[in-house]
Simulated assay, not measured.
Amino acid sequence: MTQKSYAALVTGASRGAGKGIALALAATGATVYVTGRTQREGDAPLPGTVHATAIEIDRLGGKGIALTCDHADDQQVAEVFDYIRHNSGRLDILVNNATVLHDELIRPAPFWEKPLDLVDILDVGLRSAYVASWHAAQMMAEQGDGLIAFTSSFGASCYMHGAAYGAQKAGVDKFAKDMAVDLKPYGVAAVSIWMGMLQTERTARVIAEHPEQYAGFSELAETPQFTGRLIDALYRDPQRQQKSGLVLVGAELAHEYGITELDGRRPPSHREALGGPVQAHPAIVA
Rank of each mutant, 00 (worst) to 15 (best):
F111L: 04
L246I: 02
V50W: 02
Q199T: 04
I207R: 13
V100E: 08
A273I: 13
Q143Y: 06
P47I: 03
D74T: 04
V10L: 08
D73T: 08
V247P: 00
A273M: 10
K114I: 01
P238M: 12
D58N: 11
G12F: 01
P238Y: 15
A129I: 03
Q138V: 10
A7F: 07
A66P: 13
D82I: 05
E79Y: 09
K19Q: 15
T2N: 15
T38L: 11
V32A: 02
G29R: 02
P185N: 05
A136S: 08
L230D: 04
A208Y: 11
M197Q: 06
E56W: 06
L274V: 01
A215C: 13
W194Q: 11
I55C: 09
I93W: 05
H210Q: 14
P238V: 11
I148G: 00
W112N: 10
Y159E: 10
I284C: 13
R236G: 01
L23F: 11
V278L: 08
G62V: 13
D263C: 11
K184D: 06
H51K: 12
A13W: 10
Y186F: 15
E209V: 03
H255A: 13
A163W: 03
A215D: 15
A170H: 14
G61S: 12
P224G: 10
D178K: 02
Q168F: 06
E256S: 13
Y33L: 01
V131Q: 04
V124Q: 01
L67Q: 07
I193N: 07
A180W: 06
K114V: 00
M195G: 09
S218T: 12
Q168G: 12
Y257K: 01
K19D: 09
T31D: 03
A52Q: 13
L46M: 07
T227P: 10
L118F: 10
G42V: 05
L274N: 09
Y159V: 04
E142A: 09
T53S: 09
E56G: 08
R205V: 05
S157Y: 12
V80K: 02
T227Q: 04
G20P: 07
G196V: 04
F81M: 12
L230E: 01
